[in-house]
Design a protein around this nucleic acid. Structure first.
Lengths: 255, 255
DNA sequence: ACAAAAGTGTTCCGCATACACCCATGC
DNA sequence: GCATGGGTGTATGCGGAACACTTTTGT
């Protein structure tokens, strides 16, 4: 091993940044987008603090980035296949400048940390009855995206970028939204999702027309129960029909 | 400094990957997309080899990714402001598996290298009379994207991803193409660019109509000279008009 | 005159937009 | 019966797609 290398490390002017993955796990509860965050506690001087962070970790020495991201999500959630895509990396040296973050991190990984470059991943999750967290001890919570407070590191920025990325995905391929909607969903759930995502109201009639143009969107014979107004019809996404008309090219394939 | 850290480094099972930026510098010569590549020579066993690679380098210890990418491009090209955007990171452990690449790299940076995670940047350049490379010794060459041979590392993959990214940018905001076209350009140059980018022929009349709908695209009184057919009119992109009608939101801002 | 590329108009269709009222249900 | 949200049709305009001939210039 080059003495040059050891010298650089010992001088703590290392050019070896750490690399992590952070996963923005997004869900939609029928009303709002929610992001999955983990509780973090640590010491800041004499006082103990507690705040929230994105799920993520340093990558292992011989691990692919996609694998690392996948494992981060899989360790949190029981799931089949997940929409999971890298969307961008964050490498500002200032992103670990908060002493609170740095101390917490060095305590967590038992390593001296200079800087961390993180690769952002976007996961889209169906929040439904089947969804279970793998462990309560992980302290995972869904937080409405609009109500997220100050997070660790630059995780607020990462979430904002992830939301932009979702809208780009949906613009290119609207069927991406079916990763977020329940198996059976009403027209207004779907419309609300679009309204939240693009932050603009949509005309109800025009939205119904848009839906009826999607031949892969099939109306079921099921309706809501027990609501204090006319019951809404449930729709479902038919993947087979979709794949026939969009042969091969779609963004829904998981990693 | 933690002895843990030193131990990991000495054992060469370090979890400290190197991080680099690689820049896919794309131009359009009026006929084809071209990518800027650098000559690389090295030894493979007893024999000397020579091939091509993307411009890029390891990041410095306290350097932002965007800055690193910017400096890579600026060191190659005299330029004003450049369209330069991060598009994705490449972190497969296998990407440095070719012994030729590994040996070349370790010789170049005088460091023992385990793996490298690289952040891909896309730069769009106007190939015109003003374009000059800063130094001949850098051995930079424009290679038509369709004719690029086997490159170092996974640079072929990176270029393919970059091309996809360009078409996504242009789809979202067609004015991105004016980063590639000369200051004065003909309708057929612009059309050829779209045809190359989306790999499909476009109807000439419909394309002219599309152009005339872009109010920020102004017809000049200049025409081609000395061509063996009717001379084509030159057009130019009027950025002021563009910014008025697309207030603030555009992808053309440089970093 | 001929070769080679530039430039021009019309029709058709799908999709976005704008807009107002009746329907089913629980309380 | 009333409050609440679900669901429906029409008219207008823009932009994409298809399609053939005339114009200009150099040789």
């Amino acid at each position: 091993m080059s003495s040059n290398l050891i010298h650089m490390i010992l001088s703590e002017k290392t050019i070896y940044p750490h690399v992590s993955v952070d996963c923005v796990v997004l869900g939609f509860d029928g009303m709002h987008f929610k992001v999955l965050l983990l509780k973090r506690t640590g010491m800041e001087g004499e006082t103990r603090f507690s705040d929230l962070k994105l799920p993520g970790r340093l990558i292992y020495s011989n691990e692919d980035l996609d694998e690392a991201a996948q494992s981060v999500v899989v360790e949190l959630i029981h799931s089949t296949t997940i929409f999971l895509h890298q969307f961008r990396s964050f490498g500002s040296p200032g992103r670990t400048s908060n002493p609170r973050d740095l101390h917490w991190l060095e305590n967590a990984v038992k390593l001296k940390i200079g800087r961390i470059i993180t690769v952002g991943y976007l996961a889209l999750i169906r929040i439904d009855d089947k969804l279970r967290f793998k462990s309560d001890t992980l302290q995972a919570t869904w937080v409405p995206v609009r109500e997220v407070g100050k997070l660790a590191f630059d995780h607020n920025v990462i979430i904002q970028e992830a939301m932009h990325e979702v809208s780009r995905y949906v613009t290119m391929d609207p069927s991406v939204v079916f990763n977020l909607l329940p198996k059976r969903f009403t027209a207004s759930q779907m419309r609300t999702l679009f309204e939240e995502l693009f932050d603009q109201a949509m005309d109800v009639r025009n939205f119904h027309k848009k839906m009826s143009r999607m031949n892969y969107l099939v109306a079921t014979d099921e309706f809501e129960h027990g609501v204090a107004h006319r019951a809404a019809r449930f729709y479902r996404f038919d993947k087979k029909i979709y794949l026939k008309s969009h042969g091969g090219f779609n963004l829904n394939s998981s990693l």
